[in-house]
Design a protein around this nucleic acid. Sequence first.
DNA 1: AGTAGTGTGTGCCTTATATCACAATCGGGA
DNA 2: TCCCGATTGTGATATAAGGCACACACTACT
Lengths: 220, 220
Amino acid sequence: MATGSIQTTYSNGSDDVVVPDVVVERLPLYVRVLTALAASGIDMVSSEQLGDQLHMTPAQIRKDLSYFGRFGKQGRGYNVVALVNKLKTILGLDRSWNACIVGMGRLGRAIASYPGFAPEGFKIVAAFDADQSLIGTNVDNLPVRSISDIRQAVEEDDIAIGIVAVPAVAAQSVIDSLVDAGIEAILNYAPVTAYAPDHVKIKNIDPVISLQSMTYYLKS
Amino acid sequence: MATGSIQTTYSNGSDDVVVPDVVVERLPLYVRVLTALAASGIDMVSSEQLGDQLHMTPAQIRKDLSYFGRFGKQGRGYNVVALVNKLKTILGLDRSWNACIVGMGRLGRAIASYPGFAPEGFKIVAAFDADQSLIGTNVDNLPVRSISDIRQAVEEDDIAIGIVAVPAVAAQSVIDSLVDAGIEAILNYAPVTAYAPDHVKIKNIDPVISLQSMTYYLKS
DNA sequence: AGTAGTGTGTGCCTTATATCACAATCGGGA
DNA sequence: TCCCGATTGTGATATAAGGCACACACTACT
């Protein structure tokens, strides 16, 4: 759909493997169930058991993992803790990441106060808005700054991720600013089909679009 | 990934066509840009122009539309208003839909007060929670009811869509209740890989998972 | 040490999705 | 009325993703 690289190479010690995007998108799901399994004290798991939990075929799980190495043992399965650590390293989740929010309206504030980011290593370290009456105030202990400060803040605070929560009409220009400031990943909550150059990853969160495709299947 | 029908048939006057899921998921995007074009007074549009706006190839747009009929005219393109109306009808967006929210914590309240649903025809008509101290109170003019009332409410209020905003541990059982109550579409905000039978559509909204797959591509 | 049982990793095949490319068609102007 | 430029709709082809099935590896038990 949107332009962007479909795949990347993963340098796996010996040779470089081409990893499809869809595979990378599944890895966080593996991390999540493996983390839960580890927490409940289970130390080995088979691809079949993982498949049951994730509602996918064991073959797909094995193939996905095989892009990155050989983590399992025949007859035994995968060591839960070892595998989750390896996957976290692959995904870059063995460290924390700084993010900023652009747009501190109702939605931006809800995102800023969402308690699910921090435990996973995503820290929101800056907030921006275009509204002069908001700039300078504090929201959730975050000082709201002018959008024109983005570039400087991205450098100073080592911000890698931008979260866009502005109205649709402003979204593309905000995204351009973020890209221009050197950000490489964007989580876009604005209801637009946004454009970013190939080297910048962008993902959209749009509940209305999700609902609108589901109604197709509703009978009554 | 999750089990579920990959495709459905669309009865298009003469013959039944198999419509892939991915195609249906793109239709709302077409509706959105077409609506914007209509609002700006443009009355004809070509697949190439649509492709520019959506960052996809004209061929894909034409093929997607061709699953449902022949809406364009050679040499001219598509009539914007006629096409958007047709697509809305196909998607079931020519009417309004009732939805309920389960889980009236921080997230559930943010969803309930999100102003983006109503203009698109999605009405939140009921709210449920397990917390006795919340039941009976009003949130955003919505009375919070017990989860055990779901079945009755779904029937009485003609609710077609369930929005799940409960903690991860409670999500699957809530989804089972919704399915049991006869709901056919679920928008799940809980961070779990939820299961629903094939006849129930389920979509997940999970910003953390989205971030976690993007970090794979971050260099530094 | 030998053997039975289990589950991985992967080549090969199937299915799904995207793109190409061109005949068919439309509207406007000479 | 006929021709020309534009753009659709779609068969054919190319690419991508998923799943099967089995050789191989590992453990445990005798």
